[in-house]
Amino acid sequence: MTDELGARLKAYEGQDAAVAAEGKDPVNAPMIRHWCEAMGDTNPAYEGPDAKAPPTMLQVWTMGGLSGYAGGRTQAYDELLALLDEAGYTSVVATDCEQEYVRPLRPGDEITFDSVIESVSELKTTKLGTGYFVTTRMDIRVGPHLAGTHRFRILKYAPTRRRRQQKPALRPRPVVNRDNAGFWEGIEHHRLLIQHCTTCDTLRFPWLPGCNNCGGPDWTPVEASGDGTVYSYVVMHHPPFPAFDPPYAVALVELAEGVRMISNVVGVPYDKVRIGLPVRLEFQSYDDELVLPVFRALEEAG
């Protein structure tokens, strides 16, 4: 696949990014002091009447600051960045800085600088995302004298989306054990099964190893008809859990057979769920593995 954008970007190699641009401020003691304070640098060479600026401040004197760059900047560099922005490579991070210090800068020095777009890389894939490396080289002068050179590389990239955003969170899995395995097998086959105690002839739900009426251990499964009404409900607003989209109604549904179960009511806004609302069983698939019984509202509640 040919990289059309890459070819357009390459055309900027060798073009000037700044010509005879001027530093916004002369080299000065207050900016030096603020820098040293930030860096925790107590080097006495940066103080007093013979002070020099920390050499690593070289780029600082060329910065546009809050109000942007003064004159001397060409269109080329801004155009190059705009092309990348338009193509979706909107983020920027500095990756390399190579500085050579030829003569010290001292308070009062007024700097000028020339900058050239040295290279634009091929499309690269990095941990941050895919994008292009853009390298500029700058010469910083005081009058006719070269004070230093500054090569700077940035990555203009389209950020990689976080894994969390790529993969939606999954609903929690049910805890399946030997006491309720039959229930979940039924769900798998889209059957809602209720336990029927063969000792005292009572239905029970949720599934238990013994009858909660007589204690009898023997039972047979009975399939629910699927009809029910909302016996009670709450609306969940907070806190939000992954895979849930509040607000939503959590209902206690009384099945036609007389047992009650907790589920979601679907097909009606959360604030239209009412006690007595007739509902009908449905099986909703949430992902490749998870199917859950839910209840669809049968009439529009007033």
Binding site: N43, P44, D96, P104
Partner: peptide
Amino acid sequence: TDHFGPAAELRKVAIRL
């Protein structure tokens, strides 16, 4: 410069992040 003292002069600093 902390290590070598204030008389030390930096000639080149090249870093990669």
